[in-house]
């Protein structure tokens, strides 16, 4: 038994090494200075790099837009399905997992062709990216909202609110949404992380976002590109960690009745 434990420990340590080395190396690489010294020089100059701030802002706006649009479309739709049309749940799920069957590069190609004649505000700006990131977010968005709505007595809650004289908007915003906050938080974080790091569509549709900028910067300055990609990584990992900690804490605390 102990021999098995030792073997398992050694195995896990080796796998862990494989996962830690590239991260450690990326941090080391971004701290390199002339000669064999290390400093924060690259990180200090990162924000002065040509185009960095503009593209960072574009990516942040994309993330915000994707989150807002995803919630605006999906929260009412999935709530409606749970309230009035539970027989459509399977169909809805089938529609929402479709993006998993379509590789991003293929979607990019389709978007490129389908919206060729579209007005320039749509296909000439990152607006189209935002609209497509909502599509890419559908699989996890539906899963999270569906699970969230299944865990609360949504029909009774909405009926109660209606009986007390609230309209549909009140029921949705003041009854359903507050009860779904964990699911909504999860969706927001996943969608924001997706929008921040997405490269395929952005680069093939010739948009300037932080990941696209990072790859082109990498052709002339590896250290700057590594620092920029670590920044993307740190931001999205902090978001994902917050999500996993928050949802674990909520699921552990027993829900108070009444």
């Amino acid at each position: 038994m102990t021999r098995r434990k030792v073997f398992g420990g050694v195995f896990l340590a080796l796998v862990g090494l494989y996962f830690l080395l590239p991260l450690a190396a990326a941090i080391e690489f971004s701290l390199r200075d002339v000669g064999d010294t290390h400093s924060l020089e690259v990180w200090k100059t990162l924000f002065q790099q040509d185009g960095f701030v503009t593209n960072l802002l574009t990516s942040l706006k994309l993330a915000l837009g994707t989150v807002a649009l995803t919630l605006l479309i999906m929260v009412p739709t999935v709530t409606l399905i749970h309230l009035r049309m539970p027989q459509f749940r399977r169909t809805m799920e089938a529609i929402c997992v479709l993006p998993l069957a379509i590789p991003a590069v293929v979607l990019a190609n389709g978007v490129f062709v389908a919206f060729q004649g579209a007005p320039p505000w749509l296909n000439g700006t990152p607006v189209i990216l935002c609209l497509e990131y909502v599509v890419l977010s559908l699989p996890f968005t539906y899963r999270a909202l569906d699970a969230g709505l299944s865990a609360i007595p949504v029909v009774a809650l909405v009926e109660a609110s209606r009986t007390l004289g609230g309209g549909w908007a009140t029921a949705l915003l003041r009854v359903v949404v507050p009860n779904l906050r964990t699911a909504i938080l999860n969706v927001s974080i996943l969608a924001a992380a997706l929008a921040l790091g997405e490269f395929t569509l952005a680069s093939l549709l010739l948009m300037d976002t932080l990941p696209v900028w990072t790859v082109s910067a990498g052709q002339s300055n590896g250290a700057v590109a590594t620092a920029a990609s670590m920044l993307i990584l740190i931001v999205s990992w902090v978001l994902l960690l917050v999500m996993s900690v928050l949802s674990r804490r909520r699921s552990r605390t027993p829900r108070r009745s009444r």
């Binding site: 450690a24 080391e28 990609s229």
Partner: peptide, 20 residues
């Protein structure tokens, strides 16, 4: 969820010709 650009640069930083 870790793929794409940051992953590529992390591997170059580790195992590339001048990697750590």
């Amino acid at each position: 969820n870790f793929g794409g650009v940051p992953l590529a640069f992390a591997f170059i930083a580790a195992f590339g010709p001048v990697g750590m």
